Amino acid sequence: MSLTLNVNGVDHSLDVDPTTPLLYVLRDDLGLNGAKFGCGLGQCGACTVTVDGKAVFSCLLPALAARGRRIVTVEGLGTAAAPGAIQKAFETEQAAQCGYCIAGMIMRAKALLDANPKPTEAQIRAGLQPNLCRCGTHMRILRAVRRAAGLPSEPAPVRA
């Protein structure tokens, strides 16, 4: 079946099985390898992209369900030479260790900050919760999101 997907602002006409997960279309047909295959069950977040501004697990979304919607991958935010603001914040905070989860974390952070440019610490944590980092760089990831939002590098103390 031929379908058109808008990815990173560009329409792509593709001849793919409409039930193919979006992740495979992005990686195999479009060569966009930022989103990673982690679990294939929507439990790790390595495959996170945004669809119409919402963070989604691309391993679970059939390509047909993305037709007519705006898909953004980490490649659509910037390049190594000219990183986007969130990418730059992650780089500055050295949030990546192995790097496997980072594209998904960046995309989840992008969706969060687009919806809520000045989130609280609790909102940041809740917003990132669906994505896992097995290397344990969570504190650096949180600092990177605060930096991208223009918030203090450390969270405000909790008042009882």
Rank of each mutant, 00 (worst) to 15 (best):
L112M: 12
L128M: 14
A122L: 04
C135Y: 01
L142I: 11
A115M: 06
L132T: 12
I124V: 05
G136M: 15
P130S: 08
L112I: 01
L113Y: 02
L142F: 13
L132K: 07
R143M: 14
R134D: 10
A144W: 04
A122E: 09
G136Y: 07
N131C: 14
R143N: 15
L113M: 12
H138F: 11
G136K: 10
R140Y: 13
R146Y: 09
R134S: 11
L128V: 07
R125E: 08
G127M: 00
A126L: 11
I141H: 04
L128K: 02
G127I: 01
P117C: 12
L113V: 13
L112N: 01
T137F: 13
I141M: 02
I141D: 05
P119F: 01
A144L: 09
Q123G: 02
L142S: 09
N116Q: 10
P119G: 00
Q123L: 01
H138R: 13
L112R: 05
V145Q: 05
T137V: 07
I141A: 11
P119M: 01
N131S: 15
P119V: 10
C135H: 13
H138T: 13
R140C: 04
A126M: 02
A122G: 07
A122K: 14
A122I: 04
D114V: 06
Q129W: 07
L132W: 06
R134Q: 15
L128I: 06
Q123N: 08
N116H: 12
R140K: 15
C133V: 07
C133Q: 00
G136T: 10
K118Q: 14
